[in-house]
Amino acid sequence: MIEFDRATVIYPGGLKALKDISLTIEDGEFVVVVGLSGAGKSTMLRVINGLVPLAEGSVKVNGQEVRGAAAGDLRDIRSDIGMIFQTFNLVNRSTVINNVLAGRLSMVPRWRSTIGLWPKADVEVALQSLERVGIVDKAYERASNLSGGQQQRVGIARALAQEPELILADEPVASLDPVTSHMVMRDLQRINRELGITTLINLHFLDLARAYGQRLIGLRDGELVFDGDIADVDEDVFRGIYGRAITPEDLLDAAGT
């Protein structure tokens, strides 16, 4: 469970990227966050695992306060949260399996990770994660040799390898073509359903949000302007979030063709 309580973020330049956000996300939910570029979507995701510090208010993950957590506590919180990035953020020169194993760094003794002597169980988890996204056959290839879609699945596998309770995905399909985008989104949806992992996804395209989301959070200029069922999203709500009517650019499949 994630609880935002009057959460506010101020970036070093003085910019208020999140303003007084209060909401609760229950376990197992599949939540999509939408908003214009610069609305604060990434910021909202990043305060959950403490990559961006809060200025005011609080964010609790499973009852644990993120703000001001000691370094060790913060690592504990992060180890239960998988994160997926728009640009994959893989180490290109490393093998796929090593990239996935990075997800287990917080769970193995330090000396083992230092000399690269991974426990069998952890390697097994990594391989299973790769199987779940269907690319275990690439396990020993260099990450840079994979296609974009495959690389993003490695990113997902790395998050899965953490055996997380929560997955944060920051525009996971923004670097991918429409067909691959749908496959990756289906993967994420399946993982949410099968494993019951709470999932928060930032999306740019509204049709993707409609197709896969349950709950939708709309941000505008750092403020919460919509929070509700995806089925309730109509032209008015859209106007509230984007400040204009829907255009083909807001739809993946329309924009792709």
Partner: peptide, 11 residues
């Protein structure tokens, strides 16, 4: 990017 990614896993 990769640094941030592994930092986010709690390493």
């Amino acid at each position: 990017g990769p640094l941030e990614a592994s930092r986010a896993t709690g390493a």
